[in-house]
Computed example of a mutant assay.
Amino acid sequence: MRRKTVSATLSVLLVIGIAYGAVAYFALPEFWTVHDRHLADRISNFLTTTPQGIPGDPINVGLVGTKEEMLRAFAKAGWSAADPITLRSSIDIGLSVALDRPDDDAPVSTLLYEGRRQDLAFEKLAGESADRRHHVRFWKTAVLDNDGRPLWLGSASFDRGVGFSHDTGQITHHIAPDIDAERNNVIDSLLEAHVISSVDEAVGIGKTTDGHNGGGDPYFTDGMIKIGVLVPEDATAASSPQAGPNSD
């Protein structure tokens, strides 16, 4: 009798799990794709989308520099490059959250900008696990400065915890609503690391008080993009102490 009860319970749990997966990862994303399809022509040039075409996080930060300079700058500022999404990295971030242990290079979800997924992503933990973290995605653009270095446009936000998407029910991070604070944090941390030579502003999506990202999280912003110019790699090398002729 006990075996029958356990077997029946497991069967019910399996059915519930399959039903949840079908609804959260297939049916509802498709619904929101159709629901928001009419928004496609109105999506700002400075707004990302989810792979399903749902409006995502706005572009709010930019950096000018080579890929190598980007990697060096964030490493010097104490940020880690995010791992790509794989089965292993997904398991690792799940264990990080469940066991409250660090995962400095946990993956970030995919967002699209102008039809492309992010080229780079960086993060910095704000606690013991990947549950709470600063993170930013970047897309390389065709815009070049006078030295031929590209402009990278990014979307920065703060993950305040893990939960279920308000729109689809999928397991996801929820962002803090003040995305300007996270934009400023990215630039400030790079300034403190002395890897930015100058900062300017450009108009992004414009002032928004009731925005919602792809997970249904609310956000507000002044709609500006802060753009930093990274210190050239050769300038950094030139300013580093040089070893003397008798050094080991």
Rank of each mutant, 00 (worst) to 15 (best):
P84R: 08
R117I: 10
S89W: 02
S165Y: 03
D103G: 00
G21S: 09
A243D: 03
L13V: 12
R88K: 14
R3L: 15
R42E: 08
L14Y: 14
G244W: 02
E30D: 13
D222S: 15
G214W: 03
Y113H: 13
V186R: 07
P241Y: 04
R42N: 06
Q52H: 07
T110Y: 00
L63N: 05
F46C: 12
D234H: 11
L151F: 09
P245D: 10
G21D: 11
D103T: 01
N45I: 06
F74V: 02
S189E: 15
P55T: 00
N185P: 14
G17D: 06
V15M: 14
D159A: 11
A121Y: 05
L47W: 12
F74H: 15
A193P: 04
T49N: 11
A202S: 14
P232D: 12
L190V: 04
V6E: 07
G204F: 02
A19K: 05
E114L: 13
I227W: 08
I43Y: 05
A27S: 09
I171S: 07
A181H: 14
L112H: 12
A235G: 09
S189A: 06
V186I: 09
T86W: 08
G62C: 12
R137V: 06
D180I: 11
E123M: 14
K124L: 11
R132V: 13
A82K: 06
R3I: 13
L125F: 14
M224N: 11
L144A: 06
A27W: 01
S197H: 05
L125A: 14
Y113D: 08
I171M: 06
D119H: 10
T221F: 02
I179K: 06
G161M: 11
V143Y: 10
H173V: 07
G78F: 13
A73T: 03
K4M: 13
S89K: 08
R183K: 08
R37W: 10
A142I: 09
R133H: 11
V231P: 10
R183F: 04
G56F: 04
G244R: 02
